[in-house]
Design a protein around this nucleic acid. Structure first.
Lengths: 119, 119
DNA sequence: CAAAGATACATAAGAATATTATGTATTAGC
DNA sequence: GCTAATACATAATATTCTTATGTATCTTTG
């Protein structure tokens, strides 16, 4: 699940998958806890992913063939790494593009940043 | 409810309230069907609000004191206008600001548009 | 002028996703 | 030795949207 310190929880619903796919598309392989920490770090604690949302999602992604897993023993503790499959990489690109487009649409709709110039 | 032609529905969850509050903050008073048409028009049919999502939300906003209603008879048909209260205006500003900030965070997180210049 | 589509409201059952809570266990720091 | 952090997992609940259905009027078009 999400636990969002700054934003109302309803706002963030549905972005978790996009975030996870983006991180996995950059880092080759990551484990669950690592993902939560990375998101916290990158968003300055504005978005904090909780386990109740993350783990079920990761299991779902695995079931769909979006990721493959690899279990590694760190001492006596288990760590489960997730890696994007080829399909997963495509899905990641699609999701990120979709979100970028969504941001554009919402920016127009909410009349935000009326004068943006890409340089 | 939402019925989104272009975006996956999960992505848009939670933005409906922000959209409605934004439109009402611009137009003084609007009725439900008008809101659906305006959103459709402004987003080029990329976001289409459906009645099953919209009406319950409007009723909820009324119950919370965010909007007041005014029923007008157009011929034999009824039209229910919604107007933001003072509290509603504040909530609208908050929601829009929150979403703008959320977009910024997500833009960083997803590494979108690295070089934007505001002119 | 009849049918289809648009206008205009409303609600209810179901699905999807996140929240909250709980559980287990190891490791690090104080 | 205790607390916090690391690391996994799941289950009950809540929220929000989807899908479906219902009623009724008005407009357009063949």
């Amino acid at each position: 699940m999400y636990l969002c310190v700054m934003y109302s929880s309803e706002l963030i619903k549905g972005t978790l998958k996009t975030i996870v796919l983006k991180l996995l598309s950059e880092t080759e392989k990551m484990y669950g806890y690592e993902i939560t920490q990375k998101v916290k770090e990158l968003t300055d604690s504005k978005i904090v992913i909780t386990e109740g949302a993350l783990y079920p999602l990761l299991h779902q992604l695995e079931a769909e063939g979006i990721v493959t897993t690899e279990t590694v023993n760190i001492g006596k503790r288990v760590r489960k790494y997730y890696t994007l499959t080829q399909t997963g990489n495509e899905r990641a690109k699609e999701k990120i593009y979709e979100f970028a487009d969504f941001i554009n649409t919402m920016t127009i709709l909410l009349d935000l940043k009326p004068n943006i110039k890409y340089v």
